[in-house]
Design a protein around this nucleic acid. Structure first.
Lengths: 333, 333
DNA sequence: TTATTAATTGAAAACGTTATCAAAAGGGAG
DNA sequence: CTCCCTTTTGATAACGTTTTCAATTAATAA
């Protein structure tokens, strides 16, 4: 049982050494003899010692804490990423705290806490985070030119290419895309563009069919199916997790068997994809890798802050499960 | 612009006073003359002074920070509550940090940060949070006997009564309930029980009709409508926000007009209810009040921790919007 | 005036660490 | 046995606050 009232001095007394030696021992300094280190550690453990973060921070001027700004908590899309980032931090000396406040408030809170760095979801045009001196990285912003801050993002174009390519290799030609086509949402547009480019590259330009789901929720996918079926596709790509859930259900209700009659690939590479009504083949950067990269990026930014900011586009993975199979039609194209 | 390198001593030098006086001035101590206080505050403001939390914490042994444990971040139900709690804290001297880790990890993190208190969502049977010395309150646990820790919860039975009563007054008799009936989920069961009790109390026992939605998502509500219509109801009560969204859509697709043909009340009292396809009449504790109560409870718990823990059941509010109206049938019962 | 009290200010200790040196102990070599 | 060098340990000064109590100043009464 941890006891927060035990200090380094108590340990020193019990171990019969000076408290500066205890400090060194606890920080694995090479300056202390192995034997005494062992003894000190034993005593510390026995007393349930837990270092006082505030005291440490006061002298080190470092908190080993990173703040994650997530003002749009109601939009669940990022929840899985957040938990994965949290887990990724466990393997590092850093811990993470989360703020759900508006960006201005959040950055103030983090400054008060003196976090060593920040992770920012999306971009806020009205804020100049780089005016502050806290290192930060941004996730999920499309920016190809020289950025003002380090950006981590998935390579959506490459994702779409992999999806189309996979279906093409299985003999599919009529591959229909269902997703949101909202010009103000750069991320969605990038997916659509990626789909179009990939189809063209694979000489499937004639088969391009984009169905605007008018949203990214379950029911948007469910109700887009009728329009999608107009092109008599043998395969479909769903633009996001929730969307694909609705698509599966609608197809099954109409008597289609997946993947026998129609193959399905979904965007977003999260573990939940394996637990859907039909285990989903999906593309995208696996969310635990994404988390890992984001964590690495911010730590790098903290520890060598001088470098020029770069955009890091992560290579997506195609995760093949049971929702894709060979095209039912003879591929006589 | 805030400058974290400015200390109390810098201010003292510039203001021509001792740094202990500065400390008092900044803490609004009555021991310092108004005139000097003013001057010090001016200097502090001009220099962009921000107190060092670590130093403060070291001597005060208090952080003014409260930790919120929310391990099931993927279940969005509580997101609105979290943002409201966060906002509620803005009016207090406390700030909030969030941990999405498993309870064991979360409590360790919070201990390290030396939070003054914790808010726990739901209960974890395997953990004895009261073994630790940090004050905490629990939200959303049904427990009527003498609890081991302070509990805040909505009065679900009273909620249901208000809902049924409202519909009854509008002349409705056949009031059908759609919700999850999962025996292992105490909260859902409480709602169903509340509905049954209310119907009986209002002499509507013959009209009781419970439709198990087998879940709490949008589509669960959507697809439960057919079964609900079997009893030819003039009114329905939906067990949660998402559920009600699906119910509205299904009813509209079938050509029912709300509230002309069928009245609808939803459980959960969140602002989003006003923005649905049909602005929803709803019951439940308004989420901002709930947040307020939770915040008050943990602060109380911190500041007078000796009292016996109690269960606080909050009185629900019926918020009437456009989804309820008079029964289309003559109320000749 | 001078003594007495009240209002204001300041000096210094404390909070629990880390970090920097100086001091002590140990180990060879001459 | 002494000297020097290496290893290990310990004193002490920070870090930026709050808090306690002593010291000063101002105000009042005698």
């Amino acid at each position: 049982m941890i006891n927060l009232t035990v200090t380094i001095k108590d340990i020193a007394k019990l171990a019969g050494v000076s408290y500066s030696t205890v400090s060194k021992a606890l920080n694995n300094s090479p300056l202390v003899k192995e034997e005494t280190r062992r003894k000190i550690l034993d005593v510390a453990c026995e007393m349930g010692y837990e270092p006082n973060l505030a005291a440490k921070q006061l002298v080190r001027k470092k908190t080993d804490v990173i703040g994650l700004m997530w003002p749009t908590i109601e939009r669940i899309v990022l929840a899985t990423l957040v938990t994965n980032i949290s887990k990724a931090f466990e393997k590092t000396p850093y811990s993470m705290i989360l703020s759900v406040d508006a960006q201005e408030t959040a950055v103030d809170t983090f400054r008060k806490f003196q976090v060593d760095g920040m992770i920012v979801f999306g971009e806020s045009k009205h804020m100049h985070l780089y005016d502050y001196t806290i290192p930060f990285v941004v996730y999920g912003v499309s920016e190809s030119t020289q950025p003002l801050y380090p950006i981590i993002d998935a390579n959506h174009e490459a994702s779409m290419y992999k999806a189309v390519e996979h279906l093409h290799q299985l003999g599919h030609r009529q591959i229909t895309y269902i997703g949101q086509y909202d010009k103000s949402d750069a991320l969605q547009i990038e997916k659509v563009d990626g789909y179009v480019k990939a189809m063209k590259k694979l000489h499937l330009a004639d088969y391009i069919h984009i169905v605007d789901s008018n949203g990214l929720n379950w029911f948007d996918g469910y109700s887009a199916i009728d329009r999608a079926l107009e092109s008599k596709p043998t395969a479909m790509i769903g633009g996001s997790y929730d969307l694909s859930g609705g698509m599966i259900r609608a197809l099954q209700e109409k008597g289609f068997s997946i993947p026998h009659d129609i193959s399905l690939i979904s965007y977003d590479n999260i573990p939940q994809m394996a637990n859907m009504e039909v285990p989903m083949t999906c593309i995208g950067v696996p969310v635990h890798l994404l988390a890992e990269e984001i964590v690495q990026a911010i730590i790098h930014q903290i520890e060598s802050p001088t470098e020029e900011p770069t955009v890091k586009k992560l290579t997506p993975t195609l995760t093949i499960r049971e929702s894709t199979g060979p095209s039912p039609e003879p591929s006589d194209s």
